[in-house]
Each structure stands twice: as C-alpha cells, then as structure tokens.
Amino acid sequence: MDHLHYFGLPFEAQRAAFLDILLSDALVRQALVCARTLDLPDWLAVSGVLYNSVWNHLTGKPSGYGIKDVDLFYFDDSDLSYEAEDAVIRRAAKHFQGLPLPVEVRNQARVHLWYPQKFGRPCPRYTSSSESVRFFASKTHAVGVRYDADCQLELLAPFGLDDVFSFRVTPNRAMDNQRTHEAKGQRARDYWPEITVVPW
C-alpha cells in the first residue's frame, strides 16, 4: 500500500508532495518551463500530465507512462474567433517542438462556442482558466499548475488532492458528464490497476 502514502494527510502536506513529485519529473518540468516562456494570458497546465505523473511516481512507473498529451489552458476573451485561437495553437506547436508529448492548447474563453456542437449540451461561459477546471467530469482530474510572477509553482485544486492520492476517480456532477467520467475512469484503470472508479 506504499502508493497510498499521502492519502489522508492535511492539504498543505499533500500540496507540497504533489508539487515536489511534479518538479522531480523531468518531462513535467520541461513542459511547465516551456509553458511559462510561451507567455499566454491566464495559462494553466491541467489534468493528465499532472495526476498521471503523480500516479507513475507512486507506483514506480516510468515518466510519461500512460500520458497522452499535455493540456494547456489559457484565457483570452479579446478575440473569440477560431482564427485567433488557431494562431496561438500554431505558435505553441513550434514553441513545444522537442517535447516528447504533444501539447493541446485551448482558449477557455471560447469553450462555450464549440462545446454544444461537440457534446450535445451547453456549457457555461467561463471567466478564467481556473473556473473551467471546476467543471471537469471527475473531481480527481480537476488540478492545474502554473508559475506565478515570482517563478514559484502555484497549484489549483478546487476539490483538494485526496482523490489523487487515494487513486480514486470521483465524479463531478456540475455538468452532465457521465460518459466522460466513465471513459476516463476506465482508461485510468487500464494503466493503473490500483485505481477505483466511483460510479456516477
């Protein structure tokens, strides 16, 4: 049960462990430094590259195991056109050349414009990158990090870190995201059999 070493600890202890694990992973560290130098407004690295890296560390898996990509959010409501976001995506693709994982960059100010067509239901008009994280299908996945103005790593975890450290994928019913929760939960179990998926 060594992988549950941080489960049940106070949030500050979990926060310190979470950030230490991320910074000890060369792949994550490189992705975060690149994200900082891309200098997008209200940027946030989120989701799988973070919690999967923690699970890899705690289960003795190699860096990058089970990680599809690096999700990078930013928020810019000055131009909501597809063309403006596409220009940022193309700039990011050049910027992240050499990173072993693909980087998926998305402007959170635009999500409400394409989400209904893709998923068949509306989503809120977000006011920041941080706000969008609160609507992830699973509370476990609602984590984000970025460097602050003093180059210190800052953590966003609106539902805490106990789910991550207990290897438990817990639904977030803020939106009707049952299918996404179940699909991501199954994928996690395929890579990390220690995972428990809480039913929707």
Rank of each mutant, 00 (worst) to 15 (best):
N107E: 00
Y65L: 09
Q152S: 14
A92F: 09
D2R: 15
D71C: 10
L50G: 03
L40R: 01
T127V: 15
L22N: 08
H141A: 11
F136A: 05
H112M: 02
L101W: 05
S138F: 10
L80I: 01
H112T: 01
Y51P: 04
K139T: 08
F7A: 14
M175S: 02
L72H: 01
P102M: 07
F96K: 03
S24P: 09
L72S: 01
V198E: 09
L38C: 02
R168M: 14
L101D: 00
R146M: 10
R29N: 08
R173Q: 07
H3V: 14
T180Y: 13
F11G: 10
G64K: 01
A142W: 02
E12N: 15
D69M: 06
A16P: 05
Y65N: 04
V169Q: 10
I195D: 14
D39S: 05
R134C: 10
P124W: 00
A174F: 00
S166T: 11
K139V: 09
Q108G: 03
N177F: 07
G60L: 07
C34H: 11
H181R: 08
R146D: 05
V54K: 13
H57M: 07
W55L: 13
S81N: 03
F75K: 05
R125D: 07
R106H: 04
E131C: 01
E194N: 12
A149I: 12
S47H: 11
V198T: 13
L156F: 05
V143M: 08
S63P: 05
A84Q: 02
I89N: 08
D25N: 12
A84T: 00
V46M: 05
V70F: 03
A31S: 05
V105P: 04
D77T: 07
K139Q: 14
P124G: 02
F119S: 05
F11E: 13
M1G: 15
L156H: 08
D148W: 08
P199L: 11
I67N: 05
R15V: 03
M175R: 06
L32F: 03
D20T: 08
R187Y: 10
D190S: 03
C151L: 14
S129T: 01
L101T: 06
P193R: 03
L72N: 02
D20F: 06
S130W: 15
S53K: 06
Q152I: 12
W55S: 13
A13R: 12
R91P: 03
T196S: 13
Q97K: 08
E85F: 00
D190M: 09
P124I: 00
T180G: 11
L4Y: 15
S128V: 06
G185I: 03
G8I: 15
G48V: 13
R29W: 05
G160Y: 06
S132K: 01
Q186D: 09
V164D: 04
G120L: 14
I195H: 11
R173T: 09
A45Q: 04
A149M: 14
F119T: 09
P158F: 04
E12L: 15
Q117D: 13
A35N: 02
S24V: 10
Y147L: 08
R110D: 00
A142P: 14
F136Y: 07
G144A: 03
D2A: 14
Q178R: 13
A13K: 13
V133N: 04
D190I: 12
L32V: 06
A17K: 05
V111H: 00
S130I: 08
